[in-house]
């Protein structure tokens, strides 16, 4: 196990390096940031001064080497579009909002998908099963921003129950973006839960429990659900990473000041250091959570061992 973890960490470092190189190169393909960030009537002299200050006058491999050198020491550089604010400061301000939103969306996903998954498995081929499938299908097929705008229109504009956007109305603020973000994953988790539950419901020990007269509620939630949880649980771990890194559109629609919103602004402004920092941070989340899920999976199911 230890060897496996070390190997995965080494693989993760290589993956991060590759990702950083790709992001570094791609960001520069999109055009000259100086032309965007300086006023149109800035003179060539001023343009050159800024270009030199940001190191854009140097060969790209020199820029990359310097960037990586600073990055490993925790120095992400300065945000050009924010007048030289340290990127670590920007990320520190925004990251808690993104984690909060992703966590809530995760709870929404789990809170909707797991009970429905159990219900449709227990009530297989009934109206409950079909209704659950339709709910899941809508979540899977509608883009999250469309769901978000629809929710905003109904609950904020028409009913006036919730705020349209922002994060300044306490718990009410998180509801719409959290549901819009979490709903997308409901279908997959629900179907996994359903199939896993059906498999467990068909096992001998469950049949025995029923024959022995154990109450149905106890059979389902104590014996079936716990054993059926391993597969959806693994998937939900991965969803955690997806929610953390995939909130870009939702944060923009709901004016949620998180990392996704920051990433969109950075892309718009060609603020290379911010784009690089956010993408690498997202990649790190993803890789780390994958690793964590793998390790926990092994602990949860002792029959699984990695070679």
């Amino acid at each position: 196990m230890q060897r496996y973890i070390i190997l995965r960490i080494a693989q993760s470092v290589v993956a991060l390096l590759v990702i950083s190189a790709i992001v570094f190169a791609l960001a520069r393909v999109t055009g000259d940031p100086v032309a965007i960030l300086l006023p149109e009537d800035a003179s060539p002299k001023v343009v050159e001064q800024i270009r030199t200050k940001w190191g854009l006058d140097q060969p790209i491999y020199v820029q990359y080497a310097k960037y990586i050198g600073n990055f490993v020491t925790g120095d992400f550089g300065e945000a050009w579009a924010y007048g030289g604010v340290p990127i670590t400061e920007l990320i520190a301000r925004r990251l808690p909002n993104t984690i909060y939103l992703a966590s809530f969306a995760w709870i929404v996903s789990a809170g909707i998908a797991l009970p429905i998954g159990v219900l449709v498995a227990v009530k297989k081929d009934t109206v409950f099963d079909w209704t659950g499938k339709i709910i899941a299908l809508i979540g899977q097929s509608a883009p999250s921003f469309a769901i978000g705008l629809l929710l905003m229109w109904v609950f904020a504009v028409i009913l006036g129950w919730l705020p349209t956007s922002g994060n300044d109305a306490g718990f009410k603020s998180i509801l719409l973006p959290g549901i819009a973000l979490g709903y997308y994953n409901v279908a997959a988790v629900m179907r996994l839960t359903r199939s896993s539950m059906l498999e467990v419901l068909d096992t001998e020990y469950v049949k025995l429990a029923r024959i022995k007269g154990m109450p149905e509620r106890k059979v389902i939630w104590k014996h079936c659900f716990r054993n059926a949880l391993i597969v959806p649980f693994t998937y939900m771990g991965l969803i955690g990473a997806v929610l953390l890194t995939g909130s870009v559109v939702i944060e923009t629609v709901f004016v949620w000041p998180g990392l996704g919103d920051l990433a969109i602004d950075a892309i718009r402004n060609r603020d290379f250091p911010v784009i690089q920092a956010v993408v690498i941070l997202f990649a790190t989340f993803y890789i780390f959570i994958n690793l964590l899920v793998d390790v926990m999976y092994a602990y949860l199911n002792p029959r699984i061992r990695y070679n």
Partner: peptide, 16 residues
Amino acid sequence: FAEEDLTRVAMLRAKE
């Protein structure tokens, strides 16, 4: 600061 046009429309219509 609302990037999306529809968000700003919703904010006005919701009287936020």
